[in-house]
């Protein structure tokens, strides 16, 4: 039995077992990247439209300006970039999980970096989801004039 202290060689059998996680990690990483890229694209489409008054024609300019205040917009943009940056680490981790375990050291180092940031990203997601729920709930209770 070996210890968890640094060792120079990785057992190929251990590397082969760890390689079993490659598909799951890559799928999760791509899914995460697609979600954050979608948020970023929506942001890049929505902001110029709202700023240049495209929504004014739909008689909803006041709500749009109220909901998406400047601070909120910056926060969402930063959130999308942060999420993309974190999931890129997971993608690199998955790619480095080869059957021979040549880059296992680097892969698990990236895995550690991913998990260092993942709880804060998860907390931010919760705050944003709750914020959207509150906004949607609030909007649905506004009496129509």
């Amino acid at each position: 039995m070996s210890t968890n202290t640094p060792s120079l060689q990785t057992d190929p059998e251990d590397a082969a077992i760890a390689h079993g996680a490659r598909t799951s990690i890559l799928t999760m990483a791509w899914a995460g990247l697609v979600v954050y890229l979608a948020i970023l694209v929506l942001w890049l489409v929505f902001v110029p439209l709202s700023l240049f008054g495209a929504f004014a024609k739909n008689s909803q300019p006041i709500e749009v300006r109220e909901i998406f205040s400047a601070a909120c917009l910056i926060a969402i943009f930063a959130y999308a970039l942060y999420g993309g940056w974190i999931f890129r680490k997971l993608l690199l981790c998955g790619r480095m999980l080869t059957p021979d375990g040549k880059n296992l050291k680097e892969a698990l180092s990236l895995h550690r970096q991913f998990w260092t940031h993942a709880p804060s990203l998860s907390g931010l997601s919760l705050v944003i989801v709750l914020g959207i729920l509150v906004l949607v709930g609030g909007m649905s209770h506004v009496p129509k004039s």
């Binding site: 968890n4 060792s7 296992l104 050291k105 892969a107 180092s109 895995h111 550690r112 907390g123």
Partner: peptide, 26 residues
Amino acid sequence: AIPSPWESLHRTRRALLATTLALGLW
């Protein structure tokens, strides 16, 4: 220097524990 794979995983324990607690609360 990059630590050994299992040392990296060992160092991830605190973040994993925080995530487990957050998941439990969720």
